[in-house]
C-alpha cells in the first residue's frame, strides 16, 4: 500500500493536486451553472485530500489520512446543505443559473 503511493515522486502529487485545485478554482469563477460550481468545489476539496494522503504516506504519519475523513464528512454535509438551498431556489425561480442570483447590487 505504502509502496504503491510512494512509487510516484512526492512533487508530482503536489503538482497534480495544485493543478486539480486550480481547475476547481477556475470552474467556480467561470462557470454559471450552480451544480457545476458545486462539483468544482468538490474538486478543490478532493485535490486537498490527495495532497494530504500523499504527504501523510511519505511522512509515515497517519494524522493526514485522519484529516481526510474529516474533510469528507464536512464536504458531504456542505453538499447536502448546498443542494437543499439550490432546490429551494429552483422552486422559486425555475433555474440553476447563478446570474439570476444578482438582484442585490451595491
Amino acid at each position: 500500500m505504502e509502496n504503491s503511493i510512494q512509487s510516484v515522486p512526492q512533487n508530482w502529487y503536489l503538482l497534480l493536486s495544485t493543478f486539480m485545485f486550480c481547475i476547481g478554482v477556475m470552474g467556480v469563477l467561470l462557470r454559471r451553472n450552480a451544480i457545476i460550481i458545486l462539483m468544482c468545489i468538490e474538486l478543490m476539496l478532493n485535490a486537498v485530500n490527495l495532497l494530504l494522503v500523499s504527504y501523510s504516506s511519505y511522512a509515515g504519519n497517519a494524522e493526514g489520512q485522519v484529516f481526510v475523513f474529516f474533510i469528507m464528512v464536512v464536504a458531504a454535509a456542505e453538499v447536502a446543505v448546498g443542494l437543499a438551498l439550490l432546490v429551494s431556489i429552483y422552486r422559486n425561480v425555475a433555474s440553476t443559473d447563478i446570474d439570476i442570483l444578482n438582484r442585490m447590487k451595491w
Partner: peptide
C-alpha cells in the same frame, strides 16, 4: 428569493474560502 440568494451566495463564497483554508493547512502539514 432574496433569502435564497443570500443563503446560496454565502454557501458558495464560504465553501470556496474553506477550500483555500484546507489547501493551506495541507501545505503547512
Amino acid at each position: 428569493v432574496k433569502s435564497n440568494e443570500a443563503g446560496f451566495k454565502y454557501f458558495l463564497m464560504g465553501s470556496f474560502a474553506s477550500a483555500f483554508l484546507l489547501f493551506g493547512i495541507a501545505l503547512v502539514f
